[in-house]
C-alpha cells in the first residue's frame, strides 16, 4: 500500500490503480496513462525530477508532484 509512480526505482514496474479523476489532468489520460496499465520507470532526471516513464506503450516525462498522485501496485 502507498506506492506511487514516484516511489519506483529505475527499471521497476507497477500497475496503475484507480485514481481520483479530478486530480489527474485529462491530457495525462489521453497520453495513455490509464488505470490497469503497466508503468515502468526508465530514468530519473539528475535533480530527482522529472521522471521518465513508459506507460501503455508511450514514453513520457512527468513531474514528481504528479507521479506522487498516481497509486500503483509494484510488480
Amino acid at each position: 500500500m502507498g506506492d506511487t509512480i514516484a516511489s519506483l526505482r529505475i527499471g521497476e514496474r507497477g500497475i496503475i490503480e484507480d485514481f481520483s479523476l479530478d486530480i489527474i489532468p485529462l491530457c495525462l489520460l489521453e497520453m495513455g496513462c490509464l488505470p490497469g496499465k503497466e508503468v515502468s520507470l526508465i530514468q530519473i532526471a539528475p535533480l530527482k525530477d522529472p521522471l521518465y516513464i513508459k506507460v501503455n506503450g508511450s514514453h513520457l516525462a512527468i513531474r514528481k508532484e504528479m507521479a506522487d498522485l498516481i497509486n500503483i501496485t509494484k510488480l
Binding site: P25, L28, H59, A61, I62, M66
Partner: peptide, 11 residues
C-alpha cells in the same frame, strides 16, 4: 496556476 507537465519522449 495548476501545473500539468507531460511531455512525450520520442524515439
Amino acid at each position: 496556476h495548476r501545473s500539468f507537465f507531460v511531455i512525450e519522449m520520442p524515439n
